[in-house]
Design a protein around this nucleic acid. Structure first.
Lengths: 190, 190
DNA sequence: ATTATCTATAGATCTATAGATAATGC
DNA sequence: ATTATCTATAGATCTATAGATAATGC
């Protein structure tokens, strides 16, 4: 039973990883501590040696999910056009547990504790700054405002495409919003 | 104790109204049947004479919330500009329980049952058609695609403005997205 | 000796049902 | 007689804690 400090750190990481995935998929209240521990290969009793409360895990899991996503979904794209196409893809839509937590948890964050909302806010600021830096050269006007428009359209379109029961409408939302955004922010000044 | 059929219909309406408000505020799983009944002035035992299951109430409450919202938030606005300003206002942000359920429940709908997702989808189609019909005369291109962009920006910006813990950022999101949308869809052909 | 994890459980929920009660409405 | 609502509760959950166990690490 007893485990080393290194093993404890690995256990901690596994708990956070499971939570970061399942919270996006099922919501911040959608899975129990016991089930998270089971998926991480442990039992519920050990949880409170890692976190003071369930909410502490929520905060840490949101941070972990956002860090992972900033690297994969946003930063890795060379141009704004590529970023739009990646974010509003069917692959991203179908990968809730590995996708953008800002979109997957927007309603949950609004209903959550101050701690959760604060991490969420910090990470959103980071993503907005990233997006602002990706705007094509020669784009006129308020770049931060335009980044906010794009990210709002991202969050809304991805969320709607997941919520609707009609697969055709779901695709239309992704493709239409993607096409409109690309035409609004062309790669070069025309 | 015994009540007339007319009183039963009133009770039913009160249950749906409470649910329609509280679900938007707390999420589809955020309030118990017992608490909904208490707010509607009854006790939990009577609930199942009105609904076969909790999920049946969810479906009916989503429909009721969407009907109410289509009338107040969308249809009542004479121009697209007015519609944008109303939707992306601080008043709407601060009125979750009386505001747009498409935005307030987008994550919840994606995680919910088929029945709930189907009502949600129907009502979203209705709202998109409404928005399409509000596009200013002379707007070029695919009107449905543009309506999808606007509604995605609505849902995303309103959700984000509610999720963030920083009041200044919250206002910036609403005001920036509002201004960008208005400048993208001017009232007349220029 | 300390501690990471385990089993077990207390106490608080939640959905749904059973049976009692008191009106309605044929 | 029927039924809308009530009280009470069964059975399933959920967070958090208590105490046991078996390794680690001074």
């Amino acid at each position: 039973m007893g485990s080393s400090q290194a093993e404890k750190a690995e256990s901690h990481q596994r708990i956070v990883d499971v939570a970061a995935r399942r919270f996006r998929e099922l919501g911040l209240e959608g899975i129990s501590v016991a089930d998270i521990m089971k998926e991480a290969g442990m039992t519920v009793g050990g949880f409170y040696k890692h976190f003071a409360s369930r909410d502490d895990l929520v905060v840490e899991a949101i941070a972990a999910a956002c860090e992972e996503m900033e690297a994969s979904v946003l930063t890795a794209q060379p141009t704004l056009k590529k970023s739009i196409q990646t974010y509003l893809s069917e692959e991203h839509r179908d990968n809730v547990s590995g996708g953008c937590p800002i979109s997957a948890l927007v309603n949950d964050a609004a209903r959550s504790t101050d701690g959760a909302r604060e991490v969420y806010t910090e990470r959103l600021e980071g993503s907005l700054a990233l997006l602002e830096s990706q705007m094509p050269e020669g784009t006129e006007g308020n770049l931060r405002a335009k980044a906010m428009l794009i990210y709002s359209a991202y969050v809304g379109a991805l969320g709607l495409s997941r919520a609707v029961s009609d697969p055709k409408l779901s695709r239309q939302i992704l493709n239409s919003v993607s096409a409109e955004l690309i035409s609004l922010f062309p790669a070069r000044k025309s």
